[in-house]
Design a protein around this nucleic acid. Structure first.
Length: 490
RNA sequence: GAUCGCGUAGCUCAGCGGUAGAGCAUCUGCCUUUUAAGCAGAGGGUCGAUGGUUCGAGACCAUCCGCGAUCACCA
């Protein structure tokens, strides 16, 4: 760094502004590489990017510059550039330059830019990790000294993005997934809305919240764990279809599939039920996969996941019976515990029948759900915001979508009976009093809204990060979040 | 939160009781179509931190900090 500071001073002494204000480009690396033909007339281009490699040979040099679309080689010759060529010696890998010149093909066949002018756009003071690549005759790429220290990559994501192009590709795909999701929902005339992230009462999910304090009002506030209760208030208010793509915050452990802040898409549609919502989910995910990879399938390890609708549909009890031959329907707590024991599943003695069934499901069934599958009809105790099943006693109209053994969405026919909802909240309050920190809290204002009347409504939540993981073949949530949560440095 | 593993040059790593190393990057010289450019030379380190054991610690021990993996909690 010290050396680069000196170079900076030398450049200034030579009247080179190391930090000019703008640069006019008319092409990108990718466009040039795609469009260039040997027989075309002289093509003058102007590009800008970061120097990623340099090969200096006295009075001529080659360098690769990287812009958002990729890398392209530039060729700089003293004969063509004159005095500024000497300043080029003061440049380093990591500096950002603009280059104007004509496109040509080198002796070794690489399409490159023969510079007629170049300008320093930003001097880099901190050395970038240098990653080299070799492509052999078969076209296989070997990477030398890759920048792979996970801690550095996550703490200094900007470096990771510069140096590891596949990381950048993943995040571009993330953005495309969100774009296609919005396009799909907007075409159906659902309104994208915004609801509070700071909430006096948190609800809509079972999780522990982050707590903060508002000074002016002198009240505690919670970061939302879900948008659900606010979006339903909007359905009460007369909107037929609303969705929100937002960060939720849950004060819990971190691992492969959990980050304390994560992105959720929630959608509520009036006059629809969960069966309608299943079809919407299939179509939406299918359209996203199509637009992303031009294919309905994604390869994950040994599995080829096919998102083409319709997806397999199983009831929760049916799926347990399918994979374990155990019939759980109508069993009481003692009977369920006995079955769990037969299946070698350890259970917390405090949990009730709903959670026992869920636990058995997650061990016995979930790992088998590789191809997209909807699991329907959950026990009522697990789902305090879902509507009672129209024909099955003790169940609610709820489904979750599973792909590759992981849940990607959760949806219900929304509970709109205010008296039932109050009773469900009261159950939750009892659980909380018994020490269940994740039990939901009574929300009187939400109940008041329901008392005014909410139409029949279907609701959906999709964990965006996990969907992105699936579609980009990443197996850690940190690899689809730009700046994952880390402990503070030092 | 628990268990195990890791932390050495800008990056990737070797060294595992006896003078801190390699490749790339950097610097100097040569080089006007190179591409992991090449050739010749040079510089670069609180070995994560603090204590301890030892004649001697990068290495052994303890504690702490950070990261990772697995598990637990959790969608």
């Amino acid at each position: 760094m010290k050396r680069r500071r000196e170079e900076l001073d030398q450049l200034r002494a030579a009247n080179v502004n190391p930090y000019p204000y703008e640069y006019e480009r008319n092409a990108t690396a990718k466009e040039i590489l795609a469009a260039y033909k040997d027989e075309m007339p002289q093509w003058i281009v102007s590009v800008a990017g970061r120097i990623m490699s340099m090969r200096r040979m006295g009075k001529a040099s080659f360098a690769h510059i990287l812009d958002m679309t990729g890398r392209i080689q530039v060729y700089l010759k003293k004969d063509d550039l004159g005095e500024p060529y000497d300043h080029f010696k003061l440049l380093d890998i990591g500096d950002i330059i603009g280059v104007e010149g004509y496109v040509f093909r080198t002796k070794t066949g690489e399409v490159s830019i023969h510079a007629q002018r170049y300008v320093l756009l930003s001097k880099s003071l901190r050395p970038l990790p240098v990653v080299k690549e070799k492509t052999d005759e078969q076209g296989n790429k070997t990477t030398f000294d890759p920048f792979q220290d996970k801690e550095l990559r996550y703490r200094q994501r900007y470096v990771d993005l510069v140096v590891n192009h596949e990381v950048r590709d993943t995040f571009i795909k993330r953005s495309m997934i969100l774009r296609q999701m919005r396009r799909f929902l907007d075409e159906k005339n659902f309104l994208e809305v915004e609801t509070p992230a700071l909430q006096p009462i948190y609800g809509g999910a079972s999780a522990r919240p982050f707590e903060t304090h508002h000074n002016a009002l002198d009240i505690p506030l919670f970061l939302r764990i879900a948008d659900e209760l606010y979006l339903k208030r909007l359905i009460v208010g007369g909107f037929d279809g609303v969705y929100e793509i937002a960060k939720d915050f849950r004060n819990e452990g971190m691992d492969r599939t959990h980050n304390p802040e994560f992105t959720m898409m929630e959608l509520y549609v009036a006059y629809r039920d969960y069966k309608w919502m299943m079809e919407l989910v299939e179509q939406m995910v299918f359209s996203i996969a199509q637009s992303l990879n031009d294919s309905a399938t994604v390869k994950l390890g040994d599995n080829e996941i096919n998102f083409t609708p319709p997806w397999q549909r199983l009831t929760m009890f049916g799926s347990i019976e399918k994979y374990s031959s155990k019939q759980l329907r109508g069993k009481n707590e003692a009977e369920l515990r006995a079955i769990a024991k037969e299946l070698n599943i350890d259970l917390d003695p405090k949990i009730g029948t709903g959670k026992i069934i869920d636990e058995i499901f997650s061990v016995v069934v979930q790992p088998h759900l590789i191809q997209p599958t909807f699991i329907m009809d959950y026990p009522v105790e697990l789902s305090p915001l879902a509507k009672k099943h129209r024909s099955e006693e003790g169940l609610v109209e709820r489904f979750e979508g599973f792909v590759n053994g992981q849940e990607i969405c959760n949806a219900f026919s929304e509970l709109n009976d205010p008296l039932d909802q109050r009773a469900r909240f009261e159950e939750q309050v009892k659980l909380r009093e018994r020490g269940d920190e994740e039990a939901q809290t009574m929300d009187e204002d939400f109940l008041r809204a329901l008392e005014y009347g909410m139409p029949p409504t279907a609701g959906l939540g999709i964990g965006i990060d996990r969907l992105v993981m699936l579609l980009t073949q990443q197996d850690h949530i940190r690899d689809v979040i730009f700046f994952p949560q880390m402990r503070s440095e030092k």
